[in-house]
């Protein structure tokens, strides 16, 4: 297979400002960023609570969240499809095959990743953080916030890993988004489609963007953790 020609074509597409290609990139970023922004507060809150609090069922929640990590994303997609389909319990929302459906799927997929990373970060926090805050008169909420701020690099790792998980997700996005050009087609689904058609240029271009994003995320995390590692 000739790799040079499609790679050249891919870079031409990227740098010529091809509208279809950039819309696909935009859809991916839009769905991923909105999903992460929406799911971060509950995921971080749950991760914090199960790291800090002792309550009946805590262990079961930890096991469930850890199990969800390995849950196939196509099954997540199928479940959300059934919920959002016309005759499903949430069919009246008419969200199937829209970017919002993809956002919901992404939120479900990112949630356990972010909970587990937050849980690990908070469990690794110095126990004196919460106690010092409380001892200086902070209420439980402020002391909890202070703890999260102290482990902010771990929380950033949770956010970045959640983002990394959904930006490259293909199974659920195809099922609930339908891979509709100009609406729900995103980078991974476009790569899958173009490759199946034997059209490699757009796939290579999008793959290049995905890899660049992955590198940028990891570089940013590494820089930030470098700062945190100075503690």
């Amino acid at each position: 297979m000739d790799l040079i020609a499609p790679t050249r074509a891919a870079f031409r597409l990227l740098f010529s400002g091809d509208a279809e290609l950039w819309h696909i990139i935009w859809t991916s970023l839009y769905c991923s960023l909105i999903a992460i922004a929406l799911i971060t507060p509950p995921a971080v809150a749950l991760g914090f609570v199960i790291a800090r609090a002792a309550f009946p069922g805590r262990r079961a929640i930890v096991v469930l969240v850890q199990a969800l990590l390995s849950f196939p994303t196509v099954v997540v997609g199928l479940t959300i499809y059934m919920l959002l389909s016309r005759h499903g319990p949430l069919g009246f929302l008419q969200l199937l095959f829209t970017p919002e459906a993809i956002i919901i799927a992404y939120m479900v997929i990112a949630f356990p990743v972010m909970v587990v990373f937050t849980l690990a970060a908070v469990q690794a926090a110095d126990p004196r953080v919460f106690e010092t805050a409380r001892g200086l008169g902070a209420g439980r909420l402020r002391a909890s916030w202070t703890t999260l701020v102290e482990v902010r690099f771990g929380i950033m790792a949770a956010v970045f890993n959640g983002f990394g998980r959904v930006i490259s997700e293909v199974g659920a996005a195809i099922i609930v988004g339908g891979n509709i050009a100009g609406l729900t087609r995103n980078m991974p689904t476009a790569i899958a489609l173009e490759t199946s058609k034997g059209e490699f240029a757009q796939g290579i271009a999008l793959g290049f963007v995905l890899i660049t994003l992955a590198l940028a995320i990891n570089a940013a995390l590494s820089v930030l953790q470098g700062e945190g590692g100075l503690k």
């Binding site: 004196r128 010092t132 701020v149």
Partner: peptide
């Protein structure tokens, strides 16, 4: 209360 090994926030 001041801890034996005080924790200073970052």
């Amino acid at each position: 209360y001041v801890h034996q090994h005080p924790y200073l926030f970052h």
